[in-house]
Simulated assay, not measured.
Amino acid sequence: MRTSHRTSPARRAADAFAAHHGRAAEGVWSAPGRVNLIGEHTDYNDGFVLPFALPHRIAVAAAARGDGMLAVTTIGDDGKPQHAEPVRVAELAPGRVSGWAAYPAGVAWVLRDHGISGGADLVVAGDVPSGAGLSSSHALQCAVALALLGLAGTTPDESAGGPGRLEVARWVQRSENDFVGAPTGLLDQTASLCCTAKHALFLDVRSGESEQVPFDAAQGGLAVLVIDTRASHSHSESGYGQRRQGCERAAELLGVPALRDVTGEGLADALAALPEPLRPLVRHVVTENDRVLRTVDLLRAGQLADTGPLLTASHSSLRDDYRVSCLELDVAVEAALDAGALGARMTGGGFGGSAIALVPEERESAVRRAVSSAFARRSLTAPRLFTAVPSAGAGRDE
């Protein structure tokens, strides 16, 4: 995806802050969107995930203020500012703030419980596509968390006496679950905070253990093509919460802490013990965890091209068992595979958003054309396509 902005989100946020507040920001922090290579709907089941960070980022220019108020301004794609009503940090509570402003306010609400309660002026700019399943909301929240921590003189570094990045990810998860009201798992926040360039992050959600697995598609003559279908989705308004509740109910009936504890060997017995509506959910989670582990093994062995069938199997499972795909995602996957992609799948929570395709570099142009043509034949909104490069996680820009 090519952004129309010539300057980085961090520079735009800093410039807009100076223009709006008449002084320089004390610092600028940014966090990336993410693509999940594989491991969908496994995070809230204590399972395994394998995301990587995008080069697209949300930046927050920030400065402390002494009156305890939180004031947030976002800079739109047209360069125009949008101001949220300032709120007193001490008075924040779920339901107190709605709309887009609830995301930064929710972070301030959680940080208040951890001793970070000062007011701040925040100006936000970014180029992560919203509603595309690329975690723009989590990028915003992670950047706000780092900004508020930074203003308080704290960095997410356990060795320096601060909270660890995984702990901050859990704080961000709480802000979205309990303040915004979206029942998300831990994948997106952790990816935005913890990913590194040229690697995918293999995360065991239950234990918090992680591994940076080498993932440089270009080195192997491959590309990861992201297909933003422009079919917008929302975790808080979609069937995401229903799927999560179904998984929790299935774990309860099976007498296990989470579906992570159901093994492939025990899957048949588990399915036989469950009512029919819950069986497909369990089948997806168990088989998806297995696909993540197999993908990681292939990446460790330098066999990225061989992960293609696992990506495609993941999409079939998400479409048929978890039932979170949609026409646009299915069209994108099918067209990419027909044009020579080694594997393709929807990525993110589903019900819209984006798909990814693992493509030999010499076939990338053909795959792009095939996907665009398939959408046009069905009179669907033209998709946005870009090559994803595993990039660095969140941090301070200036």
Score class of each variant (00 low, 15 high):
Ser4Trp: 10
His5Asn: 14
His5Leu: 13
Pro9Phe: 02
Ala13Thr: 12
Asp15Phe: 02
Ala16Lys: 09
His21Val: 11
Ala25Ser: 14
Val28Pro: 02
Trp29His: 08
Pro32Met: 13
Val35Gln: 03
Leu54Arg: 02
Pro55Val: 10
Ala61Thr: 07
Ala61Asp: 06
Ala63Tyr: 04
Ala63Ile: 04
Gly66Glu: 15
Leu70Asn: 08
Ala71Gly: 13
Lys80Asp: 09
His83Asp: 15
Arg88Thr: 05
Val89Leu: 06
Ala90Glu: 10
Val107Tyr: 01
Ala108Phe: 03
Val110Thr: 04
Val110Lys: 00
Asp113Met: 11
Ala120Thr: 08
Ala120Pro: 02
Ala132Arg: 06
Ser135Phe: 04
Ser136Glu: 04
His138Tyr: 09
Ala147Asn: 03
Ala147Trp: 01
Leu149Lys: 01
Thr154Trp: 09
Thr155Ser: 12
Ala160Pro: 08
Gly162Arg: 06
Pro163Asp: 06
Ala169Gln: 08
Trp171Ser: 02
Gln173Thr: 05
Asp178Trp: 04
Gly181Cys: 07
Gly181Ala: 09
Thr184Ala: 03
Thr184Glu: 04
Thr190Lys: 00
Cys195Trp: 06
Thr196Ser: 15
Thr196Gln: 15
Lys198Ser: 11
Asp204Tyr: 06
Val205Cys: 15
Arg206Ser: 14
Gln212Leu: 14
Phe215Lys: 01
Phe215Tyr: 13
Gly221Gln: 12
Gly221Met: 09
Ala223Thr: 11
Val226Gly: 11
Asp228Cys: 08
Thr229Leu: 09
Glu237His: 13
Gly239Pro: 12
Gly241Tyr: 07
Arg244Met: 07
Gly246Gln: 10
Cys247Gly: 15
Glu248Phe: 01
Arg249Met: 11
Glu252Asn: 07
Asp261Pro: 03
Thr263Ser: 15
Leu267Glu: 10
Ala268Phe: 03
Ala273Phe: 01
Leu274Cys: 12
Leu274Gly: 10
Leu274Trp: 08
Pro277Ile: 14
Arg279Cys: 05
Glu288Thr: 08
Asn289Asp: 12
Asp290Thr: 12
Arg300Tyr: 08
Gly302Ser: 09
Ala305Phe: 00
Asp306Trp: 01
Asp306Gly: 02
Pro309Ile: 00
Ala313Val: 01
Ala313Leu: 06
Ser314Tyr: 05
Ser314Cys: 05
Ser314Trp: 02
Ser317Tyr: 00
Arg323Met: 08
Cys326Leu: 11
Asp330Ile: 05
Asp338Ser: 14
Leu342Trp: 02
Ala344Leu: 09
Thr347Leu: 09
Gly348Ile: 07
Gly349Lys: 01
Gly352Glu: 04
Ala355Trp: 01
Leu358Tyr: 01
Leu358Gly: 00
Val359His: 05
Glu364Lys: 12
Ser372Cys: 11
Ser373Tyr: 00
Ser373Leu: 13
Arg378Lys: 15
Ala382His: 11
Thr387Pro: 05
Glu398Arg: 13
